[in-house]
Structures are given as C-alpha cells and as structure tokens.
C-alpha cells in the first residue's frame, strides 16, 4: 500500500533529485576539488512552475544542465520524467522529444530566417506544434521573414523560446529566459509561460529577477554555494508571511521606526498620540527581494 503510494508520488514528479553533487578539479581548493553543486534535494511536481533563484555561480546552471543531460553528476540520484539523463542509452531521442530546453545564450543560425529556423526545428520532433502558431505565440510574426542576425537581443531570446517549445514539451527548462527583455516584452513573455502552464507543461525556470519568480512560480528554491537554502512558495519564503511589518513616521524632525507583528494596532496607537494625522506614515512588509538578499547574504 505504502509502496503503491510512493510510486504514485514518483509518477507525479516531473523532476526528482536526491543528494546531487557535482565536483570539478580545482587545484586552488583545499580538497583539490570545487563543488559546483553540493548535495541538493529537490522535487518538481508535474504541472508546476518551479523557479530556481540564486546569485551567479551558485550552481543553478550546473544543476539544470545535469537535468537536461548535458553534464554528468559526480554523485546523487536524478530522475527527469522517469529517465536518468546521464544514462539515456536508447531512449535519448524519446527523452528529448518530451523536454524543451531554452539555453542561456546562443548566437547561432544567423543566416536563416526566423521562420526557417522554427520550421526546421519542428521536424526534429514527433509531435511538434504548428510553427506559425509558435511564431505568433512568442510575438515574432513581424520578424518571421527576417534573418536571425537582424534580431534584437530580446527578439533573439524569443526565438530561443520558440525553438524550446516547438516540440510540445511536457517539461520545459528556461535558463534566465528574459535577460535583455524590456518590461513590456517581459510581461508578454510571462503571459506565454502561463499559457503553457495552463496547457499542463511543467516548467523549471532559473532567473535573477525576483518579480519574475513571484509572478510565475508556484514554488521557488534559493540556491547559493551549491546548496539549497530554502524551498517555499514566493509568499512564504524566508518566513515572509509571518515577518514583522515595519512602521515608520517622522517625529521631532527624525525618522522613527517600529518592527511589529501587528501594524494595525501600532498605527492606531500612533494615530491617537498624534491626534489623527501621523506625519509621513509608511507601513511595509519585506519584499521577496529583501528576503532573498538576506538569505544569500547569509549564504555567501
């Protein structure tokens, strides 16, 4: 019975990682090796959007590239859609038919048009989306006939996304997908990701942008120095939901500040003291960014 339940849980996890380590030889390190990933446990449920947050060099890309099958782990257990990406054997093409990858930076196929690239890639997959629909979805309709070399940075990135989703992936990896986007393009991109999620796609996202994680992710994991510091929902990360609110105001020409669990009571107390109008009152709670910076500040 228990085994049966466990199997069900395993079936519904798109990704499961246990005690994952990746070490590289490094003569300057004391042990002669450097751990890019240092014992990570993580599961991503089917249909979930999971965001991996962390500073540069934290181990995000290494982790994602192990999941994608580009790198082999030093130790640990990895399952992606039930496959071991480091040992795919004859199922390599089946595995890659079911995943989509948007890499960090690419600069290829400059002499092809957007349409030629998307159409060509669609032919690699057994169940591709309609190339024209994908071009529309990423907002490159006006650039469909343009050479890739003429695209702006943000447009190039949207082409990368188009090539990542053309194969109708069950699981999509997005490595810093919106770097170089203007705010409007970022909003449009978020809309696209939500559409994919609504269609049942599982998404693993790495990002530097906390607003992006907050807008998209069901859960976020913070990673620093190859270790997971915390996994939670964006609203609860770092005890954010129960964090003290900060009430500030001006009094006797100075800025005063109180940290409190009950800001309403504090404001009422101040209000009666000032007889109604509290000078330059603010009430704030820590943003995801505040929490994140505090976490990685402690982690680095």
């Amino acid at each position: 019975m228990l085994d049966h339940l466990r199997q069900d849980a395993a079936m519904s996890d798109a990704i499961s990682i246990t005690a994952l380590r990746k070490q590289y030889p490094d003569k300057s390190a004391p042990a002669g090796v450097k751990s890019a990933v240092d014992g990570i446990d993580l599961t991503v449920a089917s249909g979930e959007i999971f965001a991996l947050l962390g500073p540069n060099g934290a181990g995000k890309t290494t982790t994602v590239e192990i999941l994608e099958g580009y790198r082999e782990p030093t130790s640990g257990e990895v399952r992606v859609l039930g496959f071991n990406p480091a040992d795919l054997g004859n199922s390599a093409s089946e595995f890659r038919n079911r995943i989509g990858i948007v890499l960090q930076s690419t600069n290829d196929a400059a002499d092809l048009s957007v349409q030629e690239s998307v159409r060509h890639f669609s032919k690699y997959y057994t169940n591709p989306k309609d190339p024209e629909e994908v071009i529309d979805a990423v907002g490159l309709r006006e650039k469909a006939k343009s050479k890739v070399r003429s695209l702006s940075g943000g447009q190039r990135r949207r082409l990368d996304v188009a090539l990542g989703i053309i194969g109708t992936p069950e699981l999509l990896f997005l490595d810093e997908p919106t770097t170089g986007f203007d705010p409007e393009a970022r909003r449009a991109f978020w809309g696209l990701i939500r559409t994919l999620r609504d269609a049942g796609t599982t998404i693993l996202l790495t990002t530097h942008y906390l607003d992006e994680a907050e807008a998209l992710a069901d859960r976020v994991g913070v990673i620093a120095n190859g270790k997971i510091l915390e996994i939670s929902t964006p609203a609860n990360l770092g005890g954010r939901n129960s964090a003290k609110a900060i009430v500030t105001w001006n009094e006797d020409g100075a800025r005063r500040e109180v940290h409190t669990d009950d800001p309403t009571k504090e404001v009422l107390r101040l209000s009666s003291r000032f007889d109604g109008n509290i000078p330059e009152l603010t009430v704030t709670r820590p943003t995801l960014e505040d929490i994140y910076l505090r976490m990685i500040g402690g982690g680095v």
Binding site: E68, G69, Y70, A92, S93, E94, R96, N97, I99, I101, L103, S105, T106, N107, D108, A109, F121, Y124, Y125, T126, L163, G167
Partner: peptide, 17 residues
C-alpha cells in the same frame, strides 16, 4: 565556431541524432 555559438549544444538538446 558552431560550438562557440551554441549551435551544437542546442541541437544536442533536441531529439536529433
């Protein structure tokens, strides 16, 4: 050059043999 541009890495992530 294709390795530098990421062409080969991208192809490696697709079902293409």
């Amino acid at each position: 050059m294709e390795r530098d541009f990421g062409t080969i890495k991208r192809l490696r992530g697709t079902p293409m043999s």
